[in-house]
Design a protein around this nucleic acid. Structure first.
Lengths: 336, 336
DNA sequence: CTGTTAGCGCTTTCAA
DNA sequence: TTGAAAGCGCTAACAG
C-alpha cells in the first residue's frame, strides 16, 4: 500500500500553502475559485483523505456522534442505525454506538464513560431514553448537543417524530370502517412516550367514529409479546369480547394472535388484530398483520441531520415530522 | 464541565515524566512497581482518560475496528454488534459500522472508502461477505488484519463459527425421533457458506437415521420468507408430501407455516416445521418454532477478541467454535 | 485572498 | 529504570 498523501503533499502539488488546502477542504470562504479548483484537483489526483485523528486533535472535536439506545427492538435499532450512518457518511462524521442499560441511574454512568472515552460532538437519543429527565438534565449539564427520536415531550428540543396520534386514529378509522364497534386497545409500556400518543389517537378515533369509550377496552401492556398474550387473555375472556384488538405494537399483536388461535378463534373472521411498527415479522405472521409503517431509517437520518444542524447553529431547534403509512394486510376484516 | 486532565497533569501529580505515565498506561515494561502504582493513583484521582485522537495520531493506529456487513437480518446483526461492542469496550477499541452492498464489486469501493476514511486497525466480516474471494483478496492486498464470523472455508483464517452440520444433524435426529420418515430440507442462499453446512448436516442426519435420501426432498431457497413460501408450495403440492420440513432458517420456516395454513394443514399435527437461528420471531409465530439457537452476540464477542489477538500476534489464527442449542417448541410433533 | 507560526495530547526515538 | 525532545497531520490565530 502506497504511503498516504498528507495535506502538505496536496499543497505542494497545487503550489499553495497548507492553510489554503485546509480552507478548500473545509469549505471556508476567502479562496479564489481558480485556486480552489486547483487544490481540488491536486487532492483528487493524490487521492487525499484528511486524517481524522489529526483533524480531531487540532480542531478539538471528535467528528463522532453517539447513538445512545436501550430499545430492545432489533429491527427498530437497525433501521435507525442505517439512517444515522447514511447521514453521517454524507457529512463525514462517524457514529459511535452506545448501548445503555434500562436502569435510569446506570444510564448516567454509561454516558459519563462515553463522554470520557469517545468525546462525541453530539448525541442521538432513542426512546425510551428520550423520556428520562435524569438523563436529559445530565446532558444539559454536560452542555453536549443532542437530538431525539420520538420524544414524549416535544417542546424546546431538536429531533424527529411521527404523528403517532394521527396514525393510531387512522387505524381505528380503518377498523370502524370494517364495521367494528367494540375495538380494544392494548397499551404500550408506560415509560414510553409512544404509548401515550397512541392511546390518545385510539381514543380520538373512537370518538370520531362515534363509538363508546369503554375503559374496559383499554388494557395495559408493555410492548412485549408476553404482555400482549396477557392482555389478550383478559380481553378474550370477557363475555362481550371485542371484535377487534389494536395492539400498540406488532410484538403484542403477535401475542394476541397466539391467544386467539389457542382459543380456536379465527383471525380475521372471528377477531381482527392489528399492530404498530411494521416490523419484518408482521409480514411473516399468519395472517400477515395490518399495522402502521414507521420509517425508522428516515427518522435516523433526519435526526442526525437535525443534530448536525443544531451543532452548527444552536437556534436550529424543533421536532421535524416524518410521515407514517397504514399498511392493511390480512389480519383485519369485516366485523363478524 | 471541568477541563480535562492531560497526561502532563498526571505526570506532574505523580512526580514523574509523561513518558513514564505513558508506559504505565500502555502496560509497557520497565517501570518500577512502586512508580507504576503512584502513576495509577494519580490518573485515577484526576479521572484521566487518554485522548483517543492524540493517541491515534502519535501511535499511527486508529483504535477502530470495522464491522463489515451486508446481512439483511436485523436480529443477527444486532446480536453480533452487541458482542463486538462488549469486546471493544473491554479492550478500549471502537467499532465502526460499515454497511456493504450486495454486489461483490461494489463492496470493494466500499472497503476502499472505509480504509481511507476510518483507517481501521482491523476488520470483522460477517457472512456472506466472508465468502467473497474478491473481497478477501483485496484485504490481503491491503494487508489489513481481519477476522470472520461463520466463514465457508475455515483454513488459514481467524474467527468463529458454529458446528452447523452437527446442529442440522441434531435437528433431523429430533424429527426422526418423532417418527418422521419423509423429512424435507429447504436450502439457504447458495452464496452463503451456512447453506452448504446445513445441507451437509441434514444429509448426515438422514443417513444416520437410516432414512431414504430423496433429492426431491431437497428444495432450493434463499433464506427469505418468500423463498420459503415458494419452496413449501413445491413440497406440499406433491402427492407423497413430507411430514416434516426443516427450513435452513426461521424466515423460510415462517413461509412454510403460511403455506401450510393456507392449505388447511395444521402444524404440527399434519406437518412439522422447524427452522434455524432462533430469531425473536420464532417464539412469536403460531405455533412457536422449533429451531437452533445461534449465539450471535457471543460470536461477535469472540470474533473481536480473535481479531485483536491476531492484530497483536499474527500467529494467533484459527476458527474458534461456539456452541449451539436445539430449541424444541411447538411446531414439531409426532409424525401423523 | 493567502501564508506563517504555534500548538492539539500523545507516542516514539534516543540518550541518560 | 527513567526522561527530553521530536514529531504524528491537522487547524487556529494572526499577519500580510
Amino acid at each position: 500500500m502506497a504511503a498516504r498523501a498528507r495535506i502538505e503533499d496536496v499543497a505542494t502539488a497545487a503550489g499553495v500553502s497548507i492553510k489554503t488546502v485546509s480552507r478548500v477542504l473545509n469549505r471556508e470562504p476567502n479562496v479564489r475559485p481558480q485556486t480552489r479548483e486547483r487544490v481540488m484537483q491536486a487532492a483528487q489526483a493524490l487521492r487525499y483523505t484528511p486524517h481524522v485523528s489529526a483533524r480531531s486533535l487540532a480542531g478539538n472535536r471528535s467528528f463522532n456522534i453517539a447513538l445512545l439506545y436501550n430499545n430492545p427492538s432489533d429491527n427498530y435499532m437497525m433501521g435507525v442505525i442505517s439512517g444515522v450512518l447514511s447521514a453521517c457518511a454524507h457529512e463525514h462524521y462517524h457514529m459511535i454506538l452506545c448501548p445503555a442499560p434500562l436502569q435510569e441511574d446506570e444510564v448516567l454512568e454509561c454516558v459519563d464513560e462515553l463522554m470520557a472515552r469517545s468525546r462525541p460532538d453530539g448525541l442521538l437519543l432513542t426512546p425510551p431514553l428520550t423520556d428520562s429527565p435524569v438523563l436529559l438534565n445530565r446532558l444539559d449539564e454536560l452542555e453536549v448537543p443532542f437530538a431525539m427520536i420520538s420524544p414524549k415531550l416535544r417542546d424546546q428540543h431538536v429531533g424527529v417524530a411521527m404523528d403517532e396520534p394521527l396514525a393510531a386514529e387512522q387505524m381505528v378509522e380503518h377498523l370502524a370502517g370494517l364495521g367494528h364497534k367494540r375495538i380494544a386497545h392494548i397499551l404500550g409500556h408506560p415509560a414510553h412516550g409512544a404509548s401515550g400518543w397512541r392511546l390518545a389517537g385510539y381514543r380520538r378515533g373512537m370518538a370520531r367514529a362515534g363509538l363508546a369509550q369503554d375503559p374496559a377496552l383499554e388494557v395495559p401492556g408493555e410492548f412485549s409479546f408476553e404482555s400482549g398474550v396477557a392482555a389478550a387473555k383478559v380481553l378474550l375472556d370477557r363475555e362481550d369480547r371485542p371484535t377487534a384488538i389494536f395492539a400498540a405494537n406488532d410484538d403484542m399483536a403477535a401475542g394476541v394472535i397466539h391467544v386467539a388461535y389457542e382459543r380456536g378463534l379465527r383471525v380475521p373472521q372471528d377477531l381482527s388484530v392489528c399492530g404498530f411498527d411494521d416490523t419484518p415479522m408482521s409480514r411473516q405472521l399468519f395472517p400477515a398483520l395490518t399495522t402502521i409503517h414507521q420509517p425508522t431509517d428516515e427518522m435516523g437520518r433526519m435526526a442526525t441531520l437535525a443534530l448536525l444542524g443544531y451543532m452548527r447553529d444552536q437556534t436550529c431547534t424543533g421536532i421535524r415530522c416524518v410521515p407514517h403509512t397504514l399498511i392493511v394486510r390480512r389480519s383485519t376484516g369485516p366485523a363478524p
